[in-house]
Write a protein that binds this DNA or RNA. Structure first.
Length: 779
DNA sequence: TCGTGAAACTTTTTT
DNA sequence: AGTTTCACGA
């Protein structure tokens, strides 16, 4: 009898087996909700305790969020210090920073995001004079990205090019690579491809890293692409201690190059692999599991698993059919209100959809009922113009060759350097074969640049030089200096439009983001901060403590769970998306299966209640189109789902609503359809917003979240929970004010505050010198 | 050079 | 429907 080991405690048999396994390759096939994260974290902790120093363990995830979560849980188990826990992309960035010079990547290189890549690709196409053909920028990006994932070089691409189009792509590819190199930049693909390449070509490096990392743990292995596969393989060559966890049924990134064969053929790649299946589900009701397993069994390319639970069958899934997308939104919002009155916390709801465009209608309905919600779009913050502008300054300071960033800031805020001048500078730079910044430094002798303009360029350069003195100092101070010295802050303060206050608040938030980063990473520098900023993903924004209904795409939902899930827009053409239905050869089976996996992922996010809905009509890109139920709806087993048609019953008398504040422009949603089923566009005028009510064909009963069986943790209330519109506050320098509105969110509660005699301004409460006044101000 | 408004195009998913 | 690009006038 072995003594109880706390690390193995509370695990079921296969979980224990996976945690206890030590030497040699291990494949954990983990169904949804089967305690996979638990297994990985325990295993990592156990290895650090029994097998190797923490620094010899490398754990790789797909999102920063997952990495942070894993680190937190491993730390809670008493291990983790010194362990490498990161995403594939951040691992790539780290390796490149440390060893990239061997393949021509200088330290301090910039990471080009989608927008930068697009611009660069445009330039590359111009340079290769490939414009005007059938080849579009997007097609070039796609083709070259695919080539990079396969580790094909421009030269290699050219050799195998079979037609005119491919020869064009080869030329663009070459020009694009040359640009990246000249600008010392790497795109997202490079972060995987270059390390894979380095590890393949440089025996010393590979040997060294193989000795350093004795144990490899890779999560979401079903989503690895070829480059990631090679990194994993080349890092585990010596010890063969690779533990891959994943689920072929949840592979949803095929369009990004993920190769399902990586997990399906793992046992072939690593002989003597121990395979463990985690099939017991701790998340969902029996009905939800039955529905999910039935649906996914229609796929051919998979490894069969039996999902089962010891829990109860729960309620059947509800399949709702609506007349229109807006009915769908309204009904869901109404349902959330009803359930929340019954005690279900807002944070317990999630609304999921296939494409982002669907979220708008839902948002409107939630907003109309003042239901707090949050859209999971982590990149949103970093994609704001003001943030990109500020970050661009930082990027130029880090990497003066970063042309994308330089072009962004050269006239932001406006300093009289126009398009013509920039064009001349770019040509001069190309002729002299030097970087854009070098040309700008000698602008006075660039032909065609006027004296006055040269002077402006001079002072821009001086600004950058002055700022670079602060690069070594604290990051938040650096960001502050950028905002101040560039005039960007003043520019925002003086701007008159209504968004400028928000933008100012966002920019200030970037200062605190920088401060927080430095707190978390004591030896974090500008380079690391920029990498963090570039590699933040959508999923990283999920915050279960926000007290809000969460809206997200199905892709962003992976790995999450919610007591109540609404799957909206489950319509043919949307899920499965039409791109999988109308390929060059009709239905593309492989991508149809991926769509089905996406549906499967959605189904298995739900713990207790699951609502699936579709509408007969939906406005897509401004146009009302007829829709029909997804084929996947028909694949649900009758024993687990109830289908209901929900109709709009009554409109309140239009006239009584005329004086209400929310008369709306009729967006053709209610315009009559002609005989072809097409709706005439834009034939409205102001009409009252109809009050919609729904008939329930069945009485709704909601479970209460207090119910211990749901396992829902009591929601953490923010420290501003008792603040509301009208709350009196004091600002350290502006004095007494009153809250106009407040948007709760953990860590960054926004509020608009009005001060006597001044306008209202938006603050992030956590970071502003604002305190609550206990008593209303004595007038 | 810069701001305005019209036209054109876009999107499926995202590190 | 929203964003980006383009053309034009100040």
């Amino acid at each position: 009898m072995v003594h109880a080991d706390p690390i193995l405690e509370g695990l079921n048999e296969p979980q224990r087996e996976a945690v206890a396994h030590q030497e040699g390759p291990l494949l954990v096939l983990a169904g949804p909700g089967s305690g996979k994260t638990r297994v990985i974290t325990r295993r990592a902790a156990r290895l650090a305790r029994d097998a190797a120093p923490a620094s010899a363990i490398l754990a790789i995830t797909f999102t920063n969020k997952a990495a942070d979560e894993m680190r937190r849980r491993i730390t809670a188990l008493g291990a983790g210090a010194g362990m490498w826990i990161c995403t594939f992309h951040s691992l790539g960035a780290r390796l490149l920073r440390a060893y990239g010079q061997r393949i021509g990547v200088e330290p301090g290189f910039s990471i080009y995001d989608e927008a930068d890549r697009k611009q660069t690709m445009k330039s590359a196409m111009e340079e290769a004079s490939v414009g005007g053909h059938v080849l579009t920028v997007d097609k070039a990006i796609h083709a070259i990205s695919a080539a990079k994932n396969e580790l094909r070089t421009p030269a290699g691409y050219e050799v195998t090019a079979r037609d005119f189009n491919e020869r064009m792509i080869a030329r663009v590819y070459e020009a694009y690579e040359a640009l990246l190199k000249k600008q010392n930049a790497a795109d997202f693909d490079d972060l995987l491809l270059k390390p894979a390449q380095m590890l393949g070509e440089d025996d010393d490096l590979r040997r060294m890293l193989n000795q350093r990392f004795q144990y490899l743990l890779i999560d979401e292995y079903q989503d690895t692409n070829h480059a990631q596969y090679l990194v994993a393989r080349r890092l585990s060559e010596l010890n063969q201690n690779i533990c891959a966890t994943g689920d072929p049924d949840q592979s949803i990134y095929g369009w990004r190059g993920a190769n399902l064969d990586n997990i399906l053929d793992f046992e072939r790649d690593y002989p003597d692999t121990r395979v463990v299946r985690l099939e017991q589900n701790y998340r969902s009701t029996g009905a939800i599991l039955r529905a999910a397993s039935t649906v996914i069994r229609a796929n051919r390319r998979r490894k069969d698993k039996e999902l089962w639970t010891e829990g109860d069958d729960g309620e059947p899934l509800r399949v709702w059919r609506f007349a229109s997308g807006s009915d769908e939104s309204e009904h869901i919002a109404q349902n959330i209100v009803a359930m929340s009155q019954d005690g279900v916390d807002y944070a317990d709801f999630a609304i999921m959809y296939r494409v982002n465009a669907v979220s708008r209608g839902v948002e409107d309905a939630l907003r109309a009922r003042r239901i707090p919600y949050r859209i999971i779009r982590g990149v949103e913050f970093y994609n704001r113009r003001e943030i990109r502008d500020t970050v661009a300054y930082l990027r130029v300071l880090m990497n003066p060759r970063d042309e994308q960033a330089l072009l962004r800031i050269i006239n932001t805020p406006a300093r009289g350097i126009g398009k013509k001048t920039i064009e001349r500078l770019l040509i001069a730079a190309q002729n002299a074969d030097e970087t854009l910044l070098a040309t700008i430094r000698r602008a006075h002798d660039v032909p065609g640049v006027a004296k006055g303009t040269a002077k402006k360029l001079r002072s821009f350069v001086t600004l950058l030089d002055r700022l670079s003195d602060h690069v070594e100092g604290p990051l938040d101070a650096l960001v502050g200096q950028v905002l101040e010295q560039s005039g960007y802050e003043q520019y925002l303060r003086e701007a008159e439009d209504d968004s400028s206050e928000d933008r100012l608040a966002n920019v200030m938030e970037l200062v605190t983001v920088a401060a927080r980063y430095q707190q978390e990473e004591p030896d974090g520098d500008l380079d690391g901060f920029l990498a963090r900023v570039s590699l933040t993903s959508d999923q990283d924004a999920v915050d279960p403590n926000a007290g809000c209904v969460q809206l997200m795409t199905l892709h962003a939902a992976k790995g999450l769970e919610f007591p109540v899930v609404f799957l909206v827009g489950v319509e043919q053409g949307l899920l499965p998306h039409e791109r999988s239905l109308s390929g060059p050869f009709g239905v593309d089976e492989a991508s149809l299966e991926e769509e089905r996996r996406l549906f499967f992922v959605g189904l298995t996010r739900a713990m207790r209640r699951l609502h699936i809905s579709y509408a007969d009509m939906r406005a897509i890109r401004g146009r009302l189109t007829p829709r029909s139920a997804s084929q996947f709806v028909g694949e649900l087993p009758d024993s687990a789902a109830v289908v209901e048609t929900i109709s709009r019953a009554t409109f309140r008398d239009a006239r009584s609503r005329y004086n209400d504040q929310d008369a709306v422009w009729d967006e053709a949603e209610f315009a009559p359809a002609d005989e072809a089923g097409q709706t005439s566009r834009r034939r409205g005028g102001f009409r009252p917003r109809p009050e919609r009510r729904f008939e329930f064909q069945q009485t709704e009963t909601y479970f209460s979240v207090d119910d211990p069986t749901t396992g829902a943790a009591p929601t953490e209330r923010g420290r501003y929970a008792d603040w509301s519109a009208g709350t009196w506050v004091r600002h350290d320098s502006l004095g007494v004010g009153q809250v106009i509105w407040i948007q709760p969110s953990s860590g960054q509660t926004r509020a608009a505050i009005k001060f006597a005699g001044q306008g209202q301004r938006v603050y992030i409460l956590e970071h502003a010198p604002i305190h609550r006044l206990e008593r209303p101000s004595p007038q």
